[in-house]
């Protein structure tokens, strides 16, 4: 087996071109999931009907099925549905075929990581002692004020380690979105490998890239944890 350092460099340059897409998917998924998953956690903690049973159903469905299957399923279903809906609204539905598959990837990643992150938040909210609410209520905080000033900041810092794991999970999951044609790190590496029949170098490259991004995510969360000091 021969490993060509020269080709590894060429492949690296190509693979790196996928980094913005990969980073976009991580940041967008995580950023959108934060408020939505927190709201889902609240609906579950307070058993708000019918959100609570619906969310439970959704979580068990998504958890029990592979993301790859979601990607294929929605890749076939969503454009069709959106196209119909757009025509229904008098718009040109055919525009949907120009849609960048990255949006579909974002949708599926969100679908999956909302379940993990809402569970992260649910555990964090449940871990907050009753006395934190009562201390606030006794001094005339409204429920919203208590949440904004006392509960959410505490839930955030309690949930940070778990959220960090979810963010790394998102990173890893982005590596399969090439199956619907998203030009991420993995897609770029596969392409350059396929055109020259040299796979090993390209795959070593993507491992390095993922490792570095993973390290960066871990560092960011470490910094956040040391910033939000508590206990």
């Amino acid at each position: 087996m021969n490993f060509s350092l020269g080709f590894a460099l060429t492949a690296m340059v190509e693979s790196l071109k996928g980094v913005p897409v990969t980073l976009f998917l991580i940041v967008a998924t995580f950023g959108l999931a934060l408020p939505i998953s927190f709201s889902m956690a609240l609906a579950r903690v307070y058993k708000i009907f019918p959100l609570d049973p619906l969310i439970r159903l959704y979580v068990s469905f998504v958890r029990g099925t592979p993301m790859l299957a979601h990607l294929f399923f929605f890749y076939n279903l969503l454009p069709m549905v959106i196209r119909k809906a757009m025509f229904g609204l008098g718009l040109n539905g055919n525009l949907v075929y120009d849609l960048n598959p990255v949006w579909l990837a974002l949708f599926v990643l969100l679908l999956n990581y909302l379940t993990f992150m809402s569970e992260n938040f649910r555990a964090a909210i449940l871990s907050i002692q009753k006395d934190q609410f009562e201390g606030a209520y006794a001094f005339g905080f409204t429920k919203a004020q208590a949440y904004r000033r006392i509960i959410i900041p505490q839930a955030m810092s309690t949930a940070l380690p778990a959220l960090s794991n979810s963010a790394i999970g998102i990173l890893k999951s982005t590596s399969v979105v090439f199956v619907i044609g998203v030009r991420d790190v993995t897609a770029n590496a596969k392409q350059v490998a396929a055109t020259s029949y040299r796979y090993l170098e390209a795959y070593v490259d993507i491992l390095i890239i993922y490792l570095v991004i993973c390290f960066l995510i871990t560092r960011i969360f470490q910094l956040a944890e040391s910033r939000i000091r508590r206990r």
Binding site: D131, Q132, G135, A138, F139, F141
Partner: peptide
Amino acid sequence: TAFVFQNYSLFSNKTALGNVSECLTTPR
């Protein structure tokens, strides 16, 4: 009114000063 709890019930995400000033700024 004000309440002093047996187990203190201070806000664990606030400093001593923050615990006191928060009760003035947010609800009042």
